[in-house]
């Protein structure tokens, strides 16, 4: 579905990603964990074409996308739910969702849009209630749902989510992870970036650990969950305390 080979990327004089290689198979939920500033957002933005890769290559659904513009990549079926939601604040919820369907109109699949809208309203009933409200006036959790819904309206093959649980109450976070799982079960491949590494690994099939712009570890979700370094750095378990209790 998606493959990165030795991708370098950065901003101005700053190089953020160094020779990053990873792949996502159809049907998987792949998660990327890493500390603040490791380059997770940059990685997703590079795949989406918002940041230009300086080296290496990106292949999506069999097509080389390294030099494509964002709108072309989205049209190929790769959507990003950006960090911090980025909804169209001065526009209605419904308009936000219809804008998400832009590529569907462009593909001549206009007749599917109404059904997709119903599907999104089914996933997020609160959006149906707020259809005519301005997106900027939604709560943080509702905006996150809108951002996910907007991405789904494009009928993506792969949806990339950048910290969908950021700043949300634990109950809402649970909802969001449930939704991500459901999206995956309905046939969309998922690439998930999360601070909340434990929850992410619990729904993921595989994961990568990104440290200062390099992939330092990869494996199945179970392997990563039981890896001591991962536990210490990203899962917040205090191993020394556990050992003391054990002895």
């Amino acid at each position: 579905m998606l493959r990165l080979r030795n991708v370098d990327a950065g901003y101005g004089a700053l190089t953020v990603l160094r020779r990053v290689s990873l792949h996502v198979n159809p049907g998987e939920i792949v998660t990327i964990v890493g500390a603040n500033g490791a380059g997770k957002t940059t990685l997703l933005r590079t795949v989406a074409g918002l940041v230009r890769a300086r080296g290496g290559e990106l292949v999506f659904a069999g097509a080389a996308v390294t030099r494509l513009r964002t709108e072309r990549i989205v049209a190929l079926g790769c959507s990003l739910v950006p960090e911090g939601r980025q909804v169209f604040a001065p526009m209605e919820v419904r308009e936000n969702l219809l804008l998400g369907a832009h590529v569907q109109y462009a593909r001549g699949r206009k007749d599917e849009v109404a059904r997709d809208l119903e599907r999104v309203y089914g996933l997020f009933p609160v959006l149906a209630q707020r259809a005519r409200q301005l997106a900027g006036t939604l709560s943080g959790g509702e905006q996150q749902m809108l951002a996910i819904g907007r991405a789904l309206m494009a009928r993506p093959k792969l949806v990339m989510l950048d910290e969908p649980s950021m700043g949300l109450a634990p109950l809402v976070v649970k909802d969001i992870f449930g939704i991500v799982k459901r999206i995956s079960e309905e046939g969309t491949t998922v690439l998930l970036v999360e601070q909340n590494a434990r929850s992410a690994l619990q729904i993921a099939t595989r994961g990568y650990v990104l440290e200062t712009g390099r992939i330092v570890l990869q494996g199945t979700a179970e392997e990563l969950l039981s890896n001591r370094d991962v536990q210490r750095a990203y899962l917040g378990s205090d191993l020394d305390a556990e050992n003391r209790v054990a002895t």
């Binding site: 989406a48 074409g49 918002l50 513009r69 964002t70 709108e71 989205v74 049209a75 959507s79 990003l80 950006p82 980025q86 909804v87 169209f88 604040a89 001065p90 526009m91 804008l99 998400g100 832009h102 590529v103 462009a106 907007r150 991405a151 494009a154």
Partner: peptide, 14 residues
């Protein structure tokens, strides 16, 4: 409202 988000909707912003 948001140029990056518009591009992410597949809109040819240029």
């Amino acid at each position: 409202a948001n140029r990056d988000a518009a591009a992410l909707c597949g809109i040819a912003t240029k």
